[in-house]
């Protein structure tokens, strides 16, 4: 346990903070598209997301939404991935089209 914590270094907290005003994946409405800018989650989740193509620069769109609005389906790299809003909130998107 202590190993994985020490592994976190100070990077996640220090360099890419999800500051107010950032557009996150959770802010996208159904059918909307964005480009991933930063992923601010713990090591183990980020590792899994990385393996699934959720990395900086990937284009991602919102698909179907589960009952009660959570989780949601995202489409990226030609396949579908489901994420909870709680986690999607930690994925920051590049601001574009004046959004």
């Amino acid at each position: 346990m202590s190993l994985s914590e020490s592994n976190d270094l100070e990077i996640n907290k220090g360099v890419n903070p999800v500051s107010h005003g950032c557009v996150t994946l959770a802010d996208l409405g159904p059918g909307e598209t964005g480009i991933i800018e930063a992923i601010d989650v713990d090591v183990s989740l980020r590792r899994r997301l990385n393996a699934l193509g959720v990395v900086k620069g990937t284009e991602i769109a919102v698909g179907h939404v589960a009952p009660m609005g959570d989780p949601r389906v995202y489409r990226l790299l030609g396949y579908q991935l489901s994420l909870r809003n709680e986690d999607a909130r930690k994925i920051v998107l590049k601001v574009e089209d004046g959004r």
């Binding site: 270094l9 980020r46 900086k56």
Partner: peptide, 22 residues
């Protein structure tokens, strides 16, 4: 090394490797 990479790139080294792979 990992701290260095993180400081210069603003990103965790593992994420850097993942980005490079993609």
């Amino acid at each position: 090394e990992r701290q260095n990479l993180a400081n210069t790139h603003g990103e965790d080294s593992e994420a850097m490797f993942a980005n490079a792979r993609y």
